[in-house]
């Protein structure tokens, strides 16, 4: 809740947060592709590619989503 309040007040463009159990993405534009080893999504004009193992999309909302699983790398292509 505090995070949501902070996000609302700060009005960040986007945020990608590494968590102990996965990855949290805020203010994404669209989800391009998804499978258990790779997730591709777009933020502004950047393309993010998340590589890992046993990844599942735990939560998905209009502005954010949460990935659970083993995250190995995140590659950003402009």
């Amino acid at each position: 809740m505090l995070n949501n309040i902070s996000t609302y007040l700060k009005n960040e463009e986007y945020r990608v947060t590494f968590l102990k159990y996965g990855l949290h993405v805020l203010n994404y534009k669209s989800l391009i592709d998804i499978n258990t080893n790779m997730i591709i999504f777009k933020i502004d004009n950047k393309l993010f590619k998340v590589n890992g193992k046993n990844m599942i999309l735990k939560k998905m909302d209009k502005k954010e989503f949460l990935i659970n699983g083993k995250i190995e790398s995140v590659v950003i292509n402009e």
Binding site: L31, I34, I56, K58, K59, M60, D61, K62
Partner: peptide, 14 residues
């Protein structure tokens, strides 16, 4: 997941 994405259905606690 693909169906949910396509239908723009938001969910949680999967």
């Amino acid at each position: 997941i693909k169906v949910l994405l396509r239908l723009d259905i938001y969910y949680s606690e999967l």
